[in-house]
Write a protein that binds this DNA or RNA. Structure first.
Length: 198
DNA sequence: AACAGAGCCAACCGCCGAGGT
DNA sequence: AACCTCGGCGGTTGGCTCTGT
């Protein structure tokens, strides 16, 4: 049984799903502006929205909140995401707390699209195999499960152009930090992410 | 211009832990 | 202690948009 099933009580109130309309957005914004965030299920009912509390919360946090930043992830943000992901793995909300205005959902989506694509490419370049093949091997290797971190205070970010240009493939999967002017290249980080099992 | 595939992202789903009764 | 409700989280999906052929 789903513990999060909206508490419709006895009367099966119709619950809307799918994309939010502008009217719904306005209702939600207006209600929160006047009453603040409260118990989401109550809020949804009181505001007259035929949505679950969870849906309202998600919409507000990921889209309607005034401090939500939208648009491209900056190179600095990308590096921070990589850094924090290496520490915490898929703890998106935790990572998002360190990126003001970014939501966990946005970071998660960004990771799945942009960064995983780079990891896949790096893996194929490194091993001449498909990412699936590499993942199969990594998942069976104890060495690949270790959590590699790299101190941010010692990190000197490369330029955006450098990051986006194809880098020479490192000879070893885990190059020494000293081998590249004392900081990790973006490809190194991606490779490490790969070997961490992601 | 039309189609197919890839990319992107908003939203839903299911699980878990906290807190209240 | 057991149960219930709620908020929060990570994973997944559906559909829209973009890009290449």
């Amino acid at each position: 049984m789903d513990k999060n099933r909206p508490s419709n009580s006895s009367q099966d109130v119709e619950v809307r799903k799918g994309p939010w309309t502008m009217e719904e957005d306005m209702i939600l914004i207006d209600y929160i502006a006047n009453h603040g965030e409260g118990v989401w299920n109550t809020l949804a009912k009181s505001a007259g929205l035929k949505r679950t509390g969870k849906s309202c919360r998600l919409r507000w946090l990921n889209y309607l909140r005034p401090d939500v930043r939208r648009g491209n992830i900056t190179p600095e943000e990308e590096l921070l995401i990589l850094e924090l992901h290496s520490k915490w793995g898929n703890r998106w909300s935790k990572i998002a707390k360190h990126l003001p205005g970014r939501t966990d959902n946005e970071i998660k989506n960004y990771w799945r699209t942009k960064i995983q694509k780079h990891i896949k490419q790096a893996a194929e370049n490194l091993y001449g195999q498909t990412c699936d093949q590499v993942n199969d091997q990594a998942s069976s290797s104890q060495a690949c499960s270790m959590n590699i971190t790299y101190p941010m205070e010692n990190y000197s970010p490369p330029s955006f152009q450098t990051m986006m240009e194809p880098q020479p493939i490192p000879a070893a999967p885990l190059p020494a930090a000293e081998s590249n002017d004392s900081y990790w290249s973006i490809e190194d980080i991606w490779s490490m992410q790969l070997l961490n099992g992601d």
